[in-house]
């Protein structure tokens, strides 16, 4: 990566201005600290500034593949008017989620590659953001028999691993539509099921 653009001393106050009141308003019991980035996985990411969260609500931030943590990160980048090309220079983290996720993605990429080599059937990853897709692509860059490509647009954009000689890429798999707003679980789950009389033969 090119030379550093963001220093903790100049970025941290701007982050505080946006993030501090936001966390209070949202009622998230967390605190954070901005520090100079260290390259734990230099092949995969080199953040210049890392914002680490801790506190009792950190699990809430990390639930669902760190959905809330990444949403906070994205909104902070937008609020600070950081151009999207530079978003990866600042990284939000908690409990080493980023490093663990890189490892997880790397392992799944290699497993997918093995499977495609054996079966020659394309493998679809779930939709991911660009940073995560990049990790898959990087993990597979030295593979000869398979290659990875991204297909689909926006929130469904996903990596497919295909045999290297495959000409046309498969269509993206569309995730099932989310449940409608007023959808409620149908009937109690366990109780009634257990009360059902045994079936006669």
């Amino acid at each position: 990566m090119s030379e550093k653009k963001y220093a903790v001393d100049s970025v941290a106050p701007k982050i505080d201005q946006f993030l501090k009141p936001l966390l209070v308003r949202a009622g998230f019991q967390v605190k954070y600290e901005a520090a100079e980035g260290e390259s734990v996985n230099p092949d995969f990411e080199n953040p210049e500034v890392v914002v680490r969260f801790s506190g009792s609500d950190v699990d809430l931030l990390l639930a669902n593949k760190a959905e809330v943590l990444l949403a906070l990160e994205y909104l902070t980048m937008e609020a600070l008017r950081i151009p999207s090309d530079d978003h990866s220079r600042i990284s939000f983290d908690a409990q080493d989620y980023r490093a663990l996720r890189i490892e997880e993605l790397r392992m799944s990429a290699l497993a997918a590659a093995e499977r495609v080599k054996k079966t020659r059937v394309p493998f679809h990853f779930s939709p991911m953001n660009s940073r995560e897709r990049r990790i898959i692509h990087l993990a597979l860059r030295d593979q000869a028999e398979v290659r990875s490509e991204s297909v689909g647009l926006g929130p469904i954009r996903q990596v497919v691993v295909v045999p290297s000689d495959l000409k046309t890429l498969p269509e993206p798999i569309r995730p099932p539509r989310p449940r409608p707003e007023n959808d409620r679980p149908r009937k109690p789950f366990g109780r009634d099921r257990d009360r059902r009389p045994p079936r006669r033969r």
Binding site: A26, L60, V68, L72, Y74, L75, E78, G154, P155
Partner: peptide, 20 residues
Amino acid sequence: GKQGRTARSIRTILGAAGMK
């Protein structure tokens, strides 16, 4: 935002805050 990404992020935070 692009492909609704900003709106989605706001909704994610709103959802988590609502859960509390």
